[in-house]
Structures are given as structure tokens and as C-alpha cells.
Amino acid sequence: MNEIVSLPPGVAIAIIAFLLSLLPAGLFIWLWYLRRVDRPVPNRTVAISFAIGMLLVWPAFKLEGWASEFWYDVSPATAHYFVGAVLPLQVMSDVLLPALGTFAVVATVEEGLRYLMLVIWYRKSRDIDQVFDGLVVGIAAGLGFATMENTMYFLNLFAQGSFDTLVLVFFLRFMISTLAHISFAGLMGVMLARAVFAIYKVQKRQWYIMALLVPWSLHGLYDLLLGLDLTIYAVLMLLPCLLTLISWINRREFFAIARENGQVLVNQQAPQTKSMVVMKKYFKQAESPWNIHAPWLRERRLRYTILKDLEKG
């Protein structure tokens, strides 16, 4: 008879935590990538981006840990501000010191690492040739980061024995922090791709600065609002970011092929859709001298030909 393989409890819990953390990541990867028939980047690229996002958690946590210890050594009396404010707020420093922790440490470390990784990758990669690719790869990196962060958070709660708060806090944090990382990384991905594919130096510089500044400020503000116990405002803050990302899914100019064989193209054109080809053919025929002098034929053509062509498309 086969014996049941038993894992050490720590390993088993880590596996369960990781699998649970994969749930929201799987949902969002499906929404932004897997359900598309015309996937813009190869699966391999998305998988690598997700894996690198996960790996970034380790240096991020290390740097944040060092920053926290440094703060504690310099000023133990204010070290608690690193995780949030003492509430209710009484003086200006109750907001400024947590803001220092969120903007100068957390947002700088997490967004800075992601920025460095994406800049290097976008500049070298041959798979990323549209702005939309930047969006997908950025979101995958953000999801990887959120997945690993959630796993570690779950393990920490489990180790502390905080079972009473485990389920609710865990699942809420799952969704909220995952959405936050999607927003920041997605925006960064698009802006960086625009920077890499920009032809003029001034534009390039502007996009490079924006790609760091926008996610950094949003991340800092989001963490600060959570630290000040203003969770609802933190969630509301994510709304415009997510709506922007959703509106970018079908933005035509983001599908323009911007790079070929590692060279940025001067004339970046979006690939033509079938309906566009049909409409082009229609306009060519409609504006022919025959149709200009016999407008009733244009009407007939519209009714009998174009509609059929569009349906076929």
C-alpha cells in the first residue's frame, strides 16, 4: 500500500498561501491577457514578467526592513510611524512622518525596483513592440509582486496565530493590494513603453520621468491613506487608475507597431482591422468618378455590398 506523503506544516502552509495568492492574480491575468484571442505578447514574456515581479519582493522587503531599522536607530520614539499614524491625528507630524515612510521608503523602493527592471527589459526586449505590450508586461509584473507579498503576509499572520482576523483581512488585502499593484504597474508599463518608443528626446525624457513619478506618487498616497485609516479613500483613489487602464485596453494607437528588429520605427502604424480594410475599399469605390456622377449606385452598393463585406469581416 502506498504511504501518504506528508509535508512539514510550514511548507504545506506556504504552498496553500501561495496557491491562494495566485487566485486574484489568475483572475486579472485572464481579464487582461488570457481571454484575448489576439494576445499581443508571447505567453513566455508574461510568465517571465510575473516571475520577476515575484522576485522583486525579496530586495524590496530587505530594503524596507533596513530603512525601518535605520529609522528605529535614529529615532525610536517615531519608529512606529513607519507602519502608519497613531490615531486620531493631533499635530502635523502625525501626517508628515507616516508620509515620509510611505513616499520616501515604501513607494521609492517598490516602484523604483519595478521601474529599473522594466526600463532595462523594455529597452532590450524584441517581444515588446507595442505600447499595449508594455501595459500587459507591467500588469504581470505588478501581479507577481502582489502575489508574493500576499503570500508572505498570510504566512506572517499564520505564524502570529492571528486566526480570528486571518480570513477577512487576508481576502480583503488580497483584492485591494492586488488591484493597487495592477494600477501602479500598469500605468508605469504604458508610460515606459511610450518613453522607449518615443522618437524625440524631449518626449522620451518626459515619459521616463512620468513613468516613475505617477506610480510613485500614487503608491505613496495610497499607502499613506491606508496608514491614516482612511481605507475607503485609498480604494476610491484606485478607481480612476483602474478606469484609465480599462479605457486603454481598446485604445487604437497603443496597438501601433513601434519597433522592428530592435529599432524604433519613425512611422508607427496600427495594424489594420478587417472592418477598416472593408471601409477603405468602400470609400475608394464611393469616391470613384462613376459613383460621383451616379449617386444612386452608391446607395445600392452600401446596401448590398458593404454590409455583406462587414459581416464577413
Partner: peptide
């Protein structure tokens, strides 16, 4: 989700190492 998070609380806790 945001309203539930407000009621439940605790979602500000950031990472494993820095809970002070």
C-alpha cells in the same frame, strides 16, 4: 470592498518584518 475593509480594519499592515 472598500466599505467592508473599513469595517474590518487592519488592511494597512504592510509586510511581515516591519510591524512595529
Amino acid at each position: 470592498l472598500g466599505l467592508i475593509a473599513v469595517q474590518v480594519g487592519g488592511s494597512f499592515i504592510r509586510t511581515s518584518g516591519e510591524v512595529r
